[in-house]
Amino acid sequence: MSSVIALRRAALVPVAVAGVLLLTHTHAQAQWWKRAPVDFEECADAAEKAATKAEKTAALADCNAKFAGRRKPGGGYSYYDFLQDRTFDIAGPNPTPEEQKKIDAAYAAYLAKERRSNEAAQAMARQQREQQERQVQQLQQVALRTDVERVPVPVERPKLQQTVGQRKGATCTKGSFSCEWPRLSEGLNDLKKLFNPTPTKPAKKS
């Protein structure tokens, strides 16, 4: 009885060893197939093997989230910053902290340049607007002057009327010719009437 048990144990040992070896080999193969991808391209290749379209889309999105860099044909990787619309060379599939600092510094410089460009554009637009306003004001002033010139200017009254007014007792400077002439003229007229009386008209015969 004891010998039978010993034989059975002896027979089970090789089977157990074979089972352990088989499990170890299978586990090693599973570990090889489940090895994490090293960059985006390798991750995308694995995603292409997904069973369904939804799984493929989800796998590619996961690849984009894990790897920011893309392989370059000559070696190394490149990182595209869509905020700057610019590509940076990086050593690995993701930027290192030092590389990320350089990218952030470049983005700060990019923002400063954009701000200066916007300020210059606003200043130029403001100057153009002010120039247009000045031109409009100049045109309005020219139009106003033209309208004023078209208004008829009152004609000055003849100086003869002023002389008549002086004859009627208007004030004048004493001793001036303009003031004395009306009186002299009246005196001459009286003398003419004295020496040349107006002939009387003959009476009509009935």
Rank of each mutant, 00 (worst) to 15 (best):
R86D: 11
P73V: 15
G69F: 00
A59T: 07
P73I: 13
R86G: 03
T52Q: 08
R70S: 10
F67A: 01
E55F: 05
P73K: 15
G92K: 02
T57G: 11
E98V: 12
Q84M: 11
A61M: 12
L83C: 04
A54K: 12
K56W: 09
Y77F: 15
P97R: 02
P73W: 07
Y80T: 14
K72Y: 05
Y77L: 03
D89C: 01
Y77Q: 06
R70K: 13
S78V: 10
D85K: 04
A59H: 07
Y80C: 02
K102Y: 10
G76K: 06
F67C: 06
R70L: 10
P93T: 03
A58T: 13
L83N: 14
N64T: 12
N64I: 01
P95N: 01
T96Q: 06
N94R: 00
I90C: 04
Y80A: 05
P95R: 00
D85Y: 04
R71K: 13
K53F: 13
D81A: 09
K102F: 13
Q84P: 03
G75I: 08
T52M: 08
A91P: 01
D62A: 14
T96Y: 01
K72D: 15
K101G: 11
F82A: 14
Q84A: 15
A68Q: 13
D81N: 13
Q100Y: 04
A91G: 06
K101V: 12
D81F: 02
D89K: 07
I90F: 04
K101R: 11
